[in-house]
Amino acid sequence: MTFQEGNVIRRQREITAPEEKPPYWKEAAILNIQTMSKQKVFQERFAAGVKQAALLAIISLALGVSFQAVRSDKIPWVGSWTTLSVTTQSLQGVADISLSEAFALYRDNRAFFLDARDPWSFKEGHLAGAVLIEPPDAGKQVSEIRKRAGSRQIIAYCDGAECHLGVDLAKALEKQGISSVKVLINGWSRWREAGYPIEKGNP
């Protein structure tokens, strides 16, 4: 066979040989790179995505609605979100104490206040005689709290009607065995505005 004949055969083979198909994942990648610049592919992709998204949304809606219909511990479709109901919900079962009650206890030296806010706020001002305990540190200071509180009513407070730190602190202490901690909701603002004794300074 001459060189030229060999070349012809080779060329024929190239033409007739079945084209080897790259594996699907490579094919996809090649296709992806080849067509990436083409706006149309993305447009089509986006259109398909919108359709799929709509379908997924409908499925979740159906599931959500059906589960809502059967679950026993459901919440109403429309809830009442007044400040009072929010505060009650955010108490999570912890007892709260009214401002006047708290002040009466304080006056008789029967209240032990725990400030659940941050050190900076505490430094700027806190209820007279209050001790700074950040909820995550509650566990470490249980024995000291118990000792210092004695038979006094422990009252945790934070600032703002929606601040949950007072409740968090009460719950953390409850876990450590100090129950009957009460929460003075929005304690700092209400106490200060009522003109009751406050202090400044480091913890």
């Binding site: 992709r45 799929q52 997924l56 979740s60 809606l61 599931l63 919440i75 429309v78």
Partner: peptide, 28 residues
């Protein structure tokens, strides 16, 4: 608020499944 609280988690679960299993993942 409650409508969102009831329905949004299901949307998250469904698109979570969609992405993980690759069913309509572009939509997810």
């Amino acid at each position: 608020i409650n409508v969102a609280a009831i329905l949004l988690p299901w949307l998250e679960v469904i698109i979570g499944g969609s992405l993980l299993l690759g069913i309509g993942a572009t939509g997810g």
